[in-house]
Amino acid sequence: MTTHVLILCTHNSARSVLSEGMLNHLAGKLGKDVKAHSAGSAPSGRINPFAIEALDRAGIETSGYRSKSWDEFSRDGAPPLSIVITVCDSAAAEQCPVFFGSTGGQPVKVHWGYPDPSNADGGEDGKRRAFELTRQAIGYRMLQLLALPFETMDRTALQAALVEIGRS
């Protein structure tokens, strides 16, 4: 059964998009039945071009990416979510809509914060560097997530493991 992971950030334009791309790319390379999605509470309507550039440079497919609302994942027909990860502090503090988990219950929720690479100093070169470093940091955590034995973990163990990954 596919493990669906929703990654949230307020505008769904940078960190959540980098996370979606990295998780789907790594899951595919490792043969894991995991599907990442990203969304925002107040989507900007556009993906930050530095996010697309960082993913493209890493050889990650980005066609079809779009900035979308988290409401899409609380409607009938939405994928059954196992995990919801917030990657920006403002999204972590917001009241999320009700998401439906793979067993009909609520998915496990965790916060993995990353500084906003869009705010990096140093002009375009500084932003490129910040986006690449953020992509790498996200990739490291996504590899740890993919190493988890989802099929044998109960909700409490999964929550604890995800919190621990967020500390690293």
Rank of each mutant, 00 (worst) to 15 (best):
G104Q: 01
E124T: 10
D125M: 10
V84F: 05
A78C: 07
G40K: 00
G104K: 06
A130V: 01
S69G: 11
S82G: 14
A14F: 07
G139N: 05
D33K: 14
K127W: 00
T2G: 01
L6S: 07
L158F: 02
L133Y: 02
G105A: 13
V163H: 13
D89A: 15
V17L: 13
D71M: 10
L145Q: 08
S90P: 02
T10V: 15
G21L: 02
R135P: 03
E72D: 15
R129F: 09
H4F: 11
A54C: 10
A58Y: 02
G126I: 10
T86M: 03
A93W: 08
I138W: 03
Y65K: 13
H11L: 14
P107V: 12
E164Q: 15
G40F: 08
L8P: 08
H37M: 10
M153I: 04
Q136P: 05
N12I: 09
G77Q: 05
V110H: 02
V84E: 00
Q144M: 15
L145Y: 04
S102M: 09
M153C: 02
G28T: 04
E124K: 13
L26P: 00
D89H: 14
V163F: 05
V163M: 10
S63A: 08
A36C: 05
L133F: 09
A39N: 01
K29F: 05
H11K: 12
A51C: 06
N48V: 11
A39R: 02
A14C: 13
D89G: 13
A130N: 05
D71N: 09
I138Q: 03
A36M: 08
S82I: 04
A93V: 01
S63D: 00
L23W: 00
R155M: 10
G64F: 09
Y140Q: 13
L6R: 01
L158S: 02
E20P: 05
R167W: 07
A42M: 12
T134R: 04
H111T: 08
A130W: 02
I60M: 12
G105N: 10
G139P: 05
G104A: 00
A14H: 03
G77N: 15
S19P: 04
W70V: 13
F100Y: 15
W112L: 10
V110F: 06
E61P: 03
Q106D: 15
S74Q: 01
E72A: 11
F99W: 04
S13T: 07
G45F: 10
T152P: 00
G40S: 08
G126E: 01
R129A: 11
I85N: 07
S90G: 03
I52Y: 00
E132W: 03
S74E: 06
A54V: 04
Y140G: 02
A91W: 07
P107G: 10
K109E: 13
R129Y: 07
D121N: 09
L158Y: 03
I85A: 09
P43D: 08
E61R: 13
F73W: 09
R15N: 12
K68G: 01
V108G: 03
R167I: 03
E72H: 11
P107E: 11
V110Y: 00
R15P: 02
R46G: 11
A130M: 06
D76W: 00
V108Q: 08
T103S: 15
